[in-house]
């Protein structure tokens, strides 16, 4: 397979890596940078927060600026409704110069489930304003289709709750989203193991977004590499075409002409 076949497009921009990385929860910036490099990612998410003069080390701009060939995708985390998300997106674009935005609106801190209605309203407004919009959504095929019609560049259904490591608990719904979608489907949130990333890719996802599984791993840099391999494996398997499933055994050796 050549590189051209492996690459994919998101809002008119071409990417070769199908792994998107979150930058939260890393123990320090140096580990985060090494994990980003080990993952081969070309797109990383960042969050917008108040400047804290007591903690200048929290500022990610300086370490991220050293990376080459990495695009930033500011998220709207912290927004409780569409209006706040739109403002966060505008601030993120002003600061990053990047047209990519991950719209995430999850008002309940206990489960962090996305607010489908506010997310839809924000995504529609931001898409009309020229953003490349990637909404983080519940794994709902109807909502996914409406977001595609609203001009989103991709949809990002959750595998399970943010940071939970619950894996691909929504696999059946994600399959339905992929079947009807004309835009990339990216599993975002809940993945724990590279095998789950491989499975998402085998199902037909265009990419996966991983943060906690790498940042909270025993060795985040090694896990970043492992996820890159998982994504690559799953994508290669999808391209190769998985064999059909059967409820019955199907012989691999001939059952006739056995030595008697």
């Amino acid at each position: 397979m050549n590189d051209e076949q492996k690459s994919w497009r998101l809002g008119g921009h071409e990417f070769s890596s199908r792994l998107i990385l979150g930058t939260g929860k890393f123990s320090d910036a140096a580990t985060m940078i090494k994990a980003i490099e080990a993952s081969g990612t070309e797109l990383v998410t960042v969050a917008l927060r108040r400047f804290n003069r007591e903690k200048p080390g929290d500022d990610l701009c300086a370490p991220l600026a050293k990376l080459k060939n990495i695009r930033l995708m500011p998220n709207t985390s912290g927004a409780m409704n569409a209006k706040e998300a739109v403002r966060a997106a505008q601030l993120g674009r002003e600061l990053s110069g990047s047209p990519f935005v991950k719209v995430e609106i999850h008002p309940n801190p206990h489960h962090l489930m996305p607010d489908a209605i506010e997310t839809y309203l924000a995504a529609k407004e931001l898409a009309a304003d020229g953003f490349i919009v990637l909404p983080y959504i519940p794994a709902d095929p109807v909502l996914a289709k409406k977001l595609e019609d609203a001009g989103c560049a991709a949809v990002m259904p959750l595998g399970s709750a943010i940071g939970s490591g619950g894996g691909l608990s929504t696999a059946d719904m994600i399959r339905l989203i992929i079947r009807d979608s004309n835009i990339p489907v990216i599993v975002d949130a809940g993945l724990r193991a590279p095998s789950e990333a491989a499975r998402a890719m085998e199902m037909g996802c265009a990419a996966v977004l991983v943060n906690s599984a790498i940042a909270a791993a025993g060795d985040p840099v090694a896990m970043a590499r492992a996820f890159a391999l998982g994504v690559e494996t799953g994508y290669a398997a999808r391209q190769a075409g998985l064999m059909p499933k059967s409820d019955m055994a199907v012989t691999t050796s001939p059952l006739t002409s056995f030595l008697r």
Binding site: G22, R50, L60, L72, P74
Partner: peptide, 10 residues
């Protein structure tokens, strides 16, 4: 005045 910067996030 709100002064904002990027921090780690998923």
């Amino acid at each position: 005045v709100e002064i904002l910067t990027f921090v780690g996030g998923g």
